[in-house]
Design a binder for these strands. Sequence first.
DNA 1: TACTTTTGCTAACACTGTTAATAATTTTAA
DNA 2: TTAAAATTATTAACAGTGTTAGCAAAAGTA
Lengths: 200, 200
Amino acid sequence: MGIVERKIRHKEEVRSGILAAAWNMVITDGWQSLSIRKIADAIEYSIPVIYNHFENKEAILLEFSIEGFQKLACTLSRAKGLHQLPEDQLYEMADAYWEFAFENKEYYQLMFGLGIPACEMVNQVSEMKEMTSILISTIKEALALAKNTEADYFLKFHTYWSILHGLVSIEMIEKDGKPDQLKKMILKDAMQGFVKSLML
Amino acid sequence: MGIVERKIRHKEEVRSGILAAAWNMVITDGWQSLSIRKIADAIEYSIPVIYNHFENKEAILLEFSIEGFQKLACTLSRAKGLHQLPEDQLYEMADAYWEFAFENKEYYQLMFGLGIPACEMVNQVSEMKEMTSILISTIKEALALAKNTEADYFLKFHTYWSILHGLVSIEMIEKDGKPDQLKKMILKDAMQGFVKSLML
DNA sequence: TACTTTTGCTAACACTGTTAATAATTTTAA
DNA sequence: TTAAAATTATTAACAGTGTTAGCAAAAGTA
C-alpha cells in the first residue's frame, strides 16, 4: 500500500513548494521582502502549514544559505580541478568565487549578510569619500617612485580596502572570537603581503 | 527676547534625546531591535514627534552611519600623520582601520550592512567548512616548497579569503556598477599581489 | 460504522513603521 | 486682554510583520 508513500511525497511537494515560492520572491524583490504570509499566499495554503515544514522564517533562510555554500564549494572544487599548479588554482578559484558571487547575488548576500540595511545609504554618505580619498592618496604616494597610471592607483586602493573590509567582515561573522594576538597577526600578515606586492 | 532661541534649543534637545535613546538601545541590543516605539517610550514623547525630527527610521540610521564615517576618516587621518613613509602609513592606517572596526562594532556593522541576517546562521552551516577546506588546502600546496607552520597557512588563507570577500562586498555595496572588464582587472590585480607575496 | 490521528484553518497576540485627524498649547495680532 | 493663527503633541488607526493556541475537517485505522 503506497498510501504512506503518497503522503510523504505530498508533504515534500508542499515543502519544495514553499521553497520555490520563497525563492521566486527573493529573485523578484530581494530577501528583505520575503514574508511568511506571502509564501502562504503563493502556495495557496494557510500560514501555519509553513510552520509544519520549517521551524521559523530563519530556517527557510538557512536552507538557502546551505544551498549557497554547497554551490560555492562545488564551484571552487571544479575551478581547482582545471589546473595542476597551486598558483594557477588560486587564480582560477578566485575567478570562480568572484563569478559565483555576482551570478548568484541573492545567495551571496544571504550567506554573508550583505548590504541589507545600509545598501541604499552608503552611497549617500559623502563622508565615505573623505575616507576613500585619504586611502587613495596614500596609495599614490606609496607608488610614486614607479611610473603608474591613475588606473593603477585605483586598483591598488581597491585591493587595500578590500583586504581590510574582508578581514573585518569575516571576523565579525564568525561567532567564536579569536584571541586579540591572533587577530593582530592576521592583519599584519595580510598587510605585509600587500605592501610587498606594491614594491614589486 | 530669547523665546525663539529657547524653542530651537528645546527642539535640538529633543532631537539629540532621540539620538541618545536610539544609541543606547543599539549598544544594548543591537541595530535589529531598534524601534521607533521604543525610542518614543524612552524620550517620553509620542511616536509622531520623532517624525518631526527625522523623515523615517532609516534617516536615524543614516545619522549614525555618517557619524561612523566621520570617526573613521578622522582616525585614518590621524594614523597617517604618525609616519612619513607611505608604507609605514599604510601599515598604521590598516591598524587604525582594524582597531576602529572592533572598538566601534555597532558603527562598522551599520556602515557596511554587516552580519545582520546570517550572523547567527553562518556558523551553523557545515557546508562553509567544506568551502574553507578547499581553499586552505590549496594554500598549503602553494606554500609546500618553503618551510611553513600550520599557523602560516591559516594566515595566508585568511588573507586570500578576505581579499575575495572584501572585493565582493564593496562591489555589492556600491550602487553604480563598474563595467565587467574593470571588475575583472580589480580581481586580477589583487590576486597577482597576493600570489606574488606568497612566493616571497 | 466509530474511533483516532493527522492535517489545515481561523483568529488572535504582540510586534513593526508610518500617518491622518484632532486636541492642546503657545505665539501673534487686534 | 481677547481673538485668531500657528505651532506642537496626541490619539487612534492603517498596513504590515512573525508566531501560535484552539478548533474544525479530512483521512486512516479498528
